[in-house]
């Protein structure tokens, strides 16, 4: 046990890996096999043009709906993370408000085809050009770059599950009431992540590479907030009346 914190046994870490991985697979929205079978389905040029010619508010609404659907799965994942539901309700909400979109972005690498630089969206694989009508080319291109770099790490489902839990349990979020409790859960999750990386014989500094993703995720989410705020300034009524209520709660 020399390589782990003395208060967490190997058996406990194995259990945490198992539980987190099961929670991830039960709530991951799409199975890898399903996605693999769909990987040949790419949008045709006229379909791409049809997305590009949509009014910005229609495309924004469509993306808000897709993000909200993905977030609902992340909420289910959070509920199954060991210790999450033992946190106070304030902290459960704080962690999901700050971290749910980050986990959606982490999970996106499962839906991403690096070879074709495309992501599974609205029934087929879409390149960045499909999202042109949103008017946020820079953000979209950064999201695609992020997905590509996550893919290049070739994380297993176990590793992805623990990294997602690690992100959700970030103890440095503002407005936490029981910060210490969250910190303990996050440290245990980090140990389990380290444990599974060692077990999978990854000696390429994968943990450090994952730690670097934390700031990239925060930057993407704050840029999403900025873009939403700019959109809302032009189309306040569309956001108020047509956007999913959960999306407005989280990002409003």
């Amino acid at each position: 046990d020399g390589d782990t914190c003395p208060t967490v046994s190997m058996a406990e870490l194995d259990h945490l890996v198992q539980v987190t991985s099961k929670s991830h697979l039960e709530t991951c929205q799409y199975l890898r096999e399903e996605l693999h079978q769909m990987s040949w389905q790419k949008f045709l040029q006229d379909e791409v043009e049809s997305y590009q010619s949509k009014p910005p508010e229609v495309m924004w609404q469509l993306c808000a709906v897709k993000i909200t659907e993905a977030i609902q799965y992340v909420v289910e994942f959070a509920k199954r993370i060991d210790g999450f539901m033992d946190l106070c309700q304030n902290d459960q909400i704080v962690l999901l408000k700050a971290g749910s979109l980050e986990v959606v972005l982490v999970r996106m690498c499962r839906l991403f085809d690096s070879q074709n630089n495309s992501v599974y969206f609205d029934g087929k694989f879409a390149g960045p050009d499909v999202f042109k009508a949103l008017g946020c080319d820079d953000l979209i291109s950064s999201v695609f770059d992020f997905a590509k770099s996550m893919c290049s790490l070739h994380l297993s489902e176990d590793e992805l599950a623990l990294f997602s839990a690690f992100i959700l349990l970030s103890a440095d979020r503002s407005w936490l009431q029981e910060k210490l409790q969250v910190e303990k859960l996050q440290q245990k999750t980090e140990l389990a992540l380290q444990h599974v990386l060692q077990k999978n014989q990854r000696e390429d500094g994968a943990l450090n590479k994952l730690r670097c993703k934390v700031s990239a995720l925060r930057s993407l989410c704050s840029r999403h907030a900025e873009n939403l705020s700019a959109f809302r300034a032009v189309y306040p009524d569309i956001v108020r009346t047509h956007f999913p209520p959960l999306y407005k709660e989280l990002f409003g």
Partner: peptide, 17 residues
Amino acid sequence: LKEKHKILHQLLQNSTS
């Protein structure tokens, strides 16, 4: 916070399926 996040709170309260 709970008041401002009624849907999220509700989702958290729903039992896991």
